[in-house]
């Protein structure tokens, strides 16, 4: 297992290097960052050039790239134009808030999807199945942005049950987490349903039933555990979408995480922040996928990593 882990971690290095290179290139294709640093409309060409020199943008692109790659292992993505501080710590200090929101959304997503998916599969073609399937299609069709605003209008403004925005208390987490969690739940519900439908027809489930085990034991201990393996595979891939959703949801609910920072950085071409942020997101996605792979061994003891 340790060798497997070490190999997976080592495999991440070239992937991260590739991601870093793509970020470096793409962000420079977006235009001249100097235009965001100062009011270029009232600056002369000489002053703009001075500023460009001060930030090292006058150097050949290959030199800038090598400089970027050399500093990468130390987490040095350069200085944020807007904050005048190293970018990496600015991103990292917001990471816990984003992870908190994503974590709550994952719990809500699974909390909704697991019972809905299982019940829909066990009562196939029943009214419950119809409702669960319809809800999952409907939920998938709702954009995060719209759902977030609707939840605010109903639960925060109309009923005044929950706070509108911010991150003062734990209650502030509920609406943004539900907004994100619903999206995740819709995907998982359909997957759990179809996976369970397949598994409950398997011989070993029939055997468990014929042994006289209760329906609960058959479903939870024998069927669900195996049925979850493909669901976890997709869930690992969904983490990237979830983080994409976090960016939007943080904007709507004024949640002070990485999403807000990234949106502003993209709009103002704050290169260092964008580079650091995308890199951190990439690490989180890769780590989640590794974690999912490790979860397989828990779900199916026959799976061994050497």
């Amino acid at each position: 297992m340790q060798r497997y882990l070490a190999r997976r971690v080592l495999q991440m290095i070239p992937v991260l290097l590739l991601i870093a290179t793509v970020i470096f290139v793409v962000i420079r294709l977006k235009g001249d960052p100097i235009s965001q640093l100062a009011p270029v409309d009232i600056m002369s060409k000489e002053e703009i050039d001075d500023l460009r020199r001060a930030y090292g943008f006058d150097r050949p692109i290959t030199v800038q790239y090598l400089d970027f790659i050399v500093h990468l292992p130390r987490g040095d993505f350069g200085e944020s134009f807007r904050y005048r501080q190293p970018a990496f710590p600015l991103v990292i200090e917001r990471l816990p808030k984003t992870m908190q929101l994503a974590g709550a959304a994952v719990l809500i997503g699974w909390g909704l999807a697991l019972p809905l998916g299982v019940v829909a599969a066990l009562r196939r073609n029943s009214l419950t199945d119809l409702v669960a399937t319809t809800l999952s299609v409907l939920g998938r069709a709702l954009p995060n942005f719209w759902l977030g605003i609707m939840l605010i209008l109903v639960f925060a403004v109309g009923l005044a049950w929950l706070p509108v925005s911010g991150s003062d208390t734990g209650w502030n987490l509920l609406l943004p987490a539900v907004t994100l969690g619903v999206g995740l739940a819709t995907t998982l519900t359909r997957l759990i349903r179809s996976s369970m439908l397949e598994v409950i027809r398997q011989d070993y489930v029939q055997t468990a039933r014929s042994k006289g085990l209760s329906q609960r034991t058959v479903v939870l201990k024998h069927a669900l555990r195996n049925g979850l393996i493909p669901v976890f595979t997709v869930f690992g891939l969904q983490v990237a979408y979830l983080l994409g959703g976090v960016i939007i949801v943080e904007q709507v609910f004024a949640w002070p995480g990485m999403g807000q920072l990234m949106v502003k950085a993209v709009l103002t071409r704050d290169m260092a922040i964008v580079q650091a942020g995308v890199f951190v997101f990439a690490v989180v996605v890769m780590a989640s996928n590794l974690l999912v792979d490790l979860l397989y061994t828990f779900l199916d003891p026959r799976i061994r990593y050497e």
Binding site: I149, L153, V157, P163, V164, S165, G166, Q251
Partner: peptide
Amino acid sequence: RAIPEASTRVAELQRGG
């Protein structure tokens, strides 16, 4: 307070936040 989304700012104003 920083509230990037205008409709959220309006909702906060209505709610008294």
